[in-house]
C-alpha cells in the first residue's frame, strides 16, 4: 500500500516537473510547478522530514507561486495555438546528460531507512538524539540543533536572508520609483 502510494507520488512529481518544462503557457507552467512543489513536500513527509515538508509546502507551493503569478502578470501571453513548447534537441541532449551525471550520485546513497546509513551510525547524530532534551529542554531535535547546537549557523543564515532581502528591496524599490 505504502509502496504504491510512493510510486504514484513519484510519478506525479516527475510528471508535473515535465509539464512545467514543456507547457508553452507560462500560467499553466506555474500551476504545474506549484503542483510539483506540493508533491515534493509530500515526498519529504514520506522521508520522515516533516519540517522540510512544511517549508516546501509553505514556500514552494504557496509564496513562490504567488510571486511568479505577480511577475507574469507584467508579461504578455504567447500567441499561437500550440500548447506544448517545441523542444530544442541540443538543449535536450545536454539536459539528459546533466541529469545522468547527477544520477550517478544516487547509487552512492544508502537505501531509505537503512540501518547502516551515516545518519544512524554517526556519533554526532546519536549525541543529539540522546542529549537534546536534557541539554536544551525542547522535544524537537531539529529545533534543538537549529537554535542551540548550531545556533551560530542559524544566526549566519538569518543575516544572509536579511542582507539578501534588504538588497532586493533596495534595488527593486529604486527601479519601481524612478
Amino acid at each position: 500500500m505504502n509502496e504504491a502510494l510512493e510510486i504514484a507520488l513519484l510519478v506525479f512529481v516527475v510528471g508535473s516537473a515535465l509539464v512545467t518544462a514543456l507547457l508553452r503557457d507560462v500560467l499553466g507552467s506555474i500551476i504545474a510547478f506549484s503542483a510539483y512543489s506540493l508533491g515534493i513536500s509530500i515526498v519529504w513527509v514520506f522521508l520522515r522530514a516533516p519540517d522540510v515538508g512544511l517549508t516546501e509546502a509553505a514556500v514552494g507551493a504557496g509564496v513562490i507561486t504567488v510571486l511568479f503569478l505577480l511577475t507574469i502578470a507584467k508579461t504578455v501571453r504567447p500567441t499561437g495555438e500550440r500548447t506544448v513548447e517545441r523542444v530544442n534537441p541540443g538543449a535536450l541532449i545536454i539536459t539528459i546528460a546533466f541529469v545522468a551525471v547527477l544520477s550517478t550520485t544516487v547509487f552512492a546513497l544508502p537505501p531509505v531507512g537503512s540501518s547502516e546509513s551515516a545518519v544512524v551510525t554517526d556519533n554526532v547524530t546519536n549525541y543529539y538524539l540522546e542529549n537534546a532534551y536534557t541539554e536544551t529542554e525542547v522535544n524537537n531535535v531539529v529545533t534543538a540543533v537549529l537554535a542551540a547546537y548550531r545556533g551560530f549557523d542559524t544566526l549566519g543564515e538569518a543575516v544572509v536572508v536579511y542582507s539578501a532581502g534588504v538588497g532586493i528591496l533596495l534595488v527593486l524599490q529604486k527601479e519601481v520609483f524612478e
Partner: peptide, 28 residues
C-alpha cells in the same frame, strides 16, 4: 531562549515575504 530565537526568525521571514510581495507587485 529557543522560543525567542524562533520568534526572531519568524519576524525576519515574514518581513521578507511581505516586502518581496509588495516590491514585485508594484509597478503593476
Amino acid at each position: 531562549g529557543i522560543e525567542l530565537v524562533e520568534l526572531a526568525i519568524g519576524l525576519i521571514v515574514s518581513g521578507i515575504v511581505t516586502g518581496l510581495f509588495f516590491v514585485i507587485a508594484s509597478g503593476m
